[in-house]
Nucleic acid binder design. Structure first.
Length: 438
RNA sequence: GGAGGCGUCGCCUAGUCCGGUCUAUGGCGCCGCACUGCUAAUGCGGUUUGGGUCUUAACACCCAUCGGGGGUUCAAAUCCCCCCGCCUCCGCCA
């Protein structure tokens, strides 16, 4: 959620953000109403409760005196107690109803708060999915025509290398599931190790996280809003399968107050990721570009709000370093306001060149979620005498299937083998290429 | 899955049986001040978190907060119910 004082002092800022996202603007006014109603109701309850406590405190001592009192005083004390009891009893009813009202008003306000997305960064390009801005093109796509052969797509390559099996994936688990096999499985381990080695060298703490989380973690990271339809839910246990280890990493410090001295805290999480891919029927049905389950190394950072923007730049740089090491051509885009998701105020994607598609496809994504998640998850930092929310950021270091797609397609050779980039060779026993099985 | 025990404001801890004097005790840690060649020690004061009064800061005050939720009561850390977590033992298990 965003800073409530902004709603009270500068609601136009929220309206403008909603407008740029293409989201409901009128909700801001409903929230203003609900917010002030909530505070009024709470104040009424507080006042009544204060009266009740004041009154209640008189009864105890009086009853004590009553016990010790002699016959003469007893009657008058008793009537005093009775009178107080009658008053207190009436007040108790009022308190009860005021409490119920305040709670109801609070629930309504909370519900609306959850629907407001993070304030967009004013530098984000305005528009929908297609209105991204290309910031940079890196590397040169290969000219397969001049090399004299037609590139195969990653699935053809993966099958001839006996590295990817989507047919049996579908047989066993349904469409959009796959097996990595043999050199394919080893490739994933190599990528994992390269990614972790890089992350650790930059001070990230490696983490293997739960892939199933409570509703609070999902809600707190902003995945139960518009993104909810893509989240797997285990109904019987009221748990969720995570779509990214961003969720368990963010929630790791929920309800905690961090020392400002220890910031930034950088974590590199490894987990399986699960996505329903609802609404993408017919899209990317071939191969492993869009699947229900995959593994990913995710970077996640807790830092001060002031340092967040610079950290965002570093996350992007580390993502670039990784793709550079794999020698894959790519471009960097500044994602448009309508495509940010509810948590991000700004988002940069790296899209790798996919030769058989003749286009760039998303392989990483880094978001500055400012204080949006930390407010929901109650992650604060001690800042002198005060505490205030931290900023959180996330970025993909290595999403396995898409990196494997880019790697296979870009480094394929005319004989059907695939060149292994130098940086990866050490993690594959010094091998320099993957070769088709006989 | 079964039996038993436990959950208190950073950590440890008193309080829960028998409801009001709990504005939650004490210790450790931490912060400030004083004292002292320095450090240490000592003394004094402060130190849960959230919301509000309040346009900002300080101060003050009010409300909530004793794992979470509900209930009983004029009044709940304390009594009742449900849930969650931790520990010990048993069963099962990679």
């Amino acid at each position: 959620m965003i800073d409530p004082t902004i709603l009270r002092t500068d609601p136009d800022r929220i309206r403008e953000s909603q407008r740029r996202r293409g989201e409901d603007v009128a909700i801001v006014d409903r929230l203003i109403t609900a917010d002030s109603a909530q505070r009024t109701a709470q104040q009424r309850f507080d006042d009544l409760r204060n009266k009740q406590k004041t009154l209640g405190k008189q009864i105890g001592p009086l009853q004590g005196a009553l016990k010790k009192a002699d016959e003469g005083q007893r009657a008058s004390l008793q009537s005093e107690v009775d009178a107080l009891m009658v008053q207190a009893s009436a007040l108790a009813d009022e308190v009860k109803s005021a409490d119920a009202e305040a709670n109801a008003a609070g629930l309504l306000a909370d519900e609306l708060w959850l629907q407001i997305s993070n304030l967009v960064n004013l530098d984000s390009p305005v528009g929908g999915e297609a209105d991204f801005k290309v910031l940079e093109l890196v590397g040169q796509p290969r000219d397969f025509a001049s090399e004299g052969f037609e590139p195969k797509d990653h699935l053809d390559l993966g099958e001839s290398l006996d590295a990817i099996d989507t047919v049996r994936g579908a047989k066993v688990a349904g469409s959009r599931f796959f097996y990595l096999k043999g050199q394919g499985a080893l490739l994933e381990f190599a990528l994992l190790n390269l990614a972790m080695q890089q992350a650790v060298s930059h001070g990230f703490i490696p983490m293997i996280t739960p892939a199933i989380v409570l509703p609070e973690a999902m809600e707190g990271t902003g995945f139960l809003g518009q993104a909810a339809e893509n989240v797997y839910r285990l109904e019987q246990d009221d748990l969720y399968l995570v779509g990214t280890s961003e969720v368990p990493l963010a929630a790791y410090h929920a309800d905690e107050i961090l020392d400002q001295d220890q910031l930034p805290l950088r974590y590199a999480g490894w987990s399986s990721c699960f996505r329903r891919e609802a609404g993408s029927y017919g899209k990317d049905t071939r191969g492993i570009i869009r699947v229900h389950q995959f593994d990913k190394v995710e970077m996640f950072v807790f830092t001060t709000p002031e340092a967040a923007e610079a950290e965002h730049g570093r996350l992007l740089q580390w993502e670039r370093d990784f793709i550079d090491a794999l020698e894959i051509p790519y471009r960097i885009i500044d994602v448009a306001t309508g495509d940010l998701g509810s948590s991000a105020s700004r988002k940069f994607d790296i899209e790798a060149w996919i030769p058989t598609q003749g286009t760039y496809r998303e392989v990483t994504s880094t978001s500055n979620t400012t204080e949006f998640q930390s407010r929901r998850l109650k992650i604060r930092m001690r800042d002198g005498k005060h505490q205030r929310p931290v900023a959180t950021l996330n970025g993909t270091l290595c999403a396995m299937p898409r990196i494997i797609v880019a790697l296979l397609e870009n480094h394929q050779q005319v004989d059907g083998s695939v060149r292994i980039p130098q940086a990866l060779q050490a993690f594959l026993g010094g091998k320099t290429s993957f070769t088709p099985s006989a």
